[in-house]
Amino acid sequence: MVWMPGGGGGCAAVANAAMAVETGQAEVVVVYRSLCQGQFFRFGAAGRDAAAPPDPAPPTVQQANSLMMASMGFTMPYGLLMAAAAYALPTRRHMHLYGTTSEQLGMLAVTFREHASRNPRAVMGQRPMTLDDHQNSPMIADPHRLFDCCLESDGACAIVVTSAERARDLAKRPVEILASEQGAPKGYGFGPFTNANVPDELYTTGGCGEMADRLWAKAGLGPKDVDVAQIYDHFTGCVLMQLEDYGFCERGEGGPFIESGALAWQGGSMPTNTHGGSLSEAYIHGLNHVVEGVRSLRGESTSPVDGAEVCLVTSGACVPSSAVLLGGR
């Protein structure tokens, strides 16, 4: 089961709640995420204060208290602590292999910002963005500019999971969990953040391909059946890789797929992140994507998709990940 401190496990938590209900261990489960970073720890700064004076003792090898920390000994000394830098590595190689461009990544960010403009909960709802704004935003870790990176937010959200029978007479129309999946492929470890030796064929992916195949098989559905999607967007490049993993386009075609306008609420073949996503609504480790998935099937989204019956929700990719397929009638 996937439950990492970061964003890979949001949909897995929903899946685990459904299992608890299905097996009679619980009648009602609340799945929630609450993030309060501002005064404690900023993910973007990797918990470090670069302005702090260095330890006066000469640098040396420190004792690791776990295998994971010993493995991080092979990333930290080189300054690989920020997620923005870690996920820049597979994105840069994707650009090299397939010709993906920064403008294509920018179009994705602009699309999600446009969706946020109708969402009163969106942190960036009143801050319109153009492709020029994206291209002129400060470089953080090449190719990631500021507007390729998700927000850092204080906030919380929750989902109530219960049986179909119990849900039938609730005040709000329930949404069905059609299928769920979680996991990571062999040799993936924690993905490119800590592992330079992710197999070559997986390096420029979100690591979700095998999981996606199992998800579609379980549901008896395929990518063409998805009416609306909420895709975990820690960074623009990671969305692009997931679009390929889940089969919405061929491997390497994520850039042109974005450029076609497929993700847009208006005129898109698969409106995506109708709340604005982590790039423009809020960064609640993607549990807000599950909330938006429910809203989008109940007609409650501020960017509603007419007649939507199937919604894919994914959790953080490029690490062990998870996904749910939601159905509304």
Binding site: P54, V61, A64, M69, M76, P77, L81
Partner: peptide, 17 residues
Amino acid sequence: PDGMPQPLADAISLPFW
């Protein structure tokens, strides 16, 4: 600079360092 993060090692990885 000296202030960069220092390597962490356990018994298994120490020979690398």
